[in-house]
Each structure stands twice: as C-alpha cells, then as structure tokens.
C-alpha cells in the first residue's frame, strides 16, 4: 500500500517518511504505545493531523464569541483562503487512503472550518457594506 519512491528525486531524503504514519518510531515510543492507548492514537499522524486541524475552527469560534478581535479587524484574506480550502478538502478527505476515522474526522472538521470562516467573511462583508 505504501507508495514507495513516488516522490521526486530531489526529495529523496523524505522517502523514509513516505507511507509511514508513525510520528515517533523509536523503541521508547513503541513501548509507550503499548502502555498508553491514547498515545498510540496521537502517534498515528492520520489521526492526530485531523485532530490538530480542529484548532482552526475552534480558535475563530472562541474569537467570534468573545468579540476579540472586533469585526473590523477580521483578516479577510486569511478567512477567505481558509473558507476555500475547507470546501475543497472536505471532498478530498473522502478520496485519500487510508479511509478511517481520521479521514472522516478530516472531512467533518473541514466542513466546520468552512462554515466558521464563511461566517467570519460574511459578517466582515456585512460590516463593510453597512459602513459605506
């Protein structure tokens, strides 16, 4: 399944990482995986990367509720770029291999990201239009 040597030759130093989902594969980490099941989940990047992507929806949600930064200081470039990547990636997550709980989480978290940043873009645009 691991697609070895699909990378271009100038990236050959990255080939050990190709198709390898383990963040840490030294003996200590593998021993810790057996004892702590939660660390085993974290150590598999196909689970921990989608989990880490949730911060891109949670941080703007907290900021929208707390009102800091205020609506006129919302970064329109950043928010709209995250809105578009969220839409494309929700579909891409359904195509990649492995299809597991991590890829489903990636699809859901991209939908959440697109909606939160879409809301941010919308309220900044509404604020700008009302000011004119």
């Amino acid at each position: 399944m691991a697609a070895i040597s699909q990378l271009p030759s100038f990236l050959r130093f990255l080939r050990p990482l190709e198709g390898n989902a383990k963040l840490f594969s030294n003996a200590a980490a593998l021993a810790l995986e057996k004892r702590v099941p939660l660390f085993a989940k974290f150590n598999d990047v196909t689970y921990s990367a989608p989990a880490a992507k949730w911060i891109l929806s949670i941080v703007p949600l907290i900021q929208a509720f707390s009102g800091n930064p205020p609506v006129e200081k919302i970064d329109l470039k950043q928010s709209s770029s995250l809105l578009f990547t969220g839409m494309v990636w929700a579909y891409y997550a359904t195509l990649i291999t492995p299809q597991n709980a991590g890829s489903r989480a990636l699809c859901i978290c991209n939908m959440a990201m697109a909606s939160v940043h879409g809301y941010n873009v919308a309220r900044r645009a509404r604020h700008d239009l009302n000011k004119q």
Binding site: M1, A2, A3, Q6, L7, P8, L11, L14, L17, E18, G19, N20, A21, L23, V45, T46, S48, A49, A52, K53, I55, L56, I96, T97, P98
Partner: peptide, 17 residues
C-alpha cells in the same frame, strides 16, 4: 496545523509532495 500536515502529506497514499 502546518507542522502536522507537513508530516501527513507524506504519510497518506498517494503521497502529496
């Protein structure tokens, strides 16, 4: 987020350089 996805982009199949 970028640190995690640098690693993720190579772990999936097909890899995404």
């Amino acid at each position: 987020y970028s640190l995690f996805f640098m690693r993720w982009s190579l772990a999936i199949s097909p890899p995404n350089p």
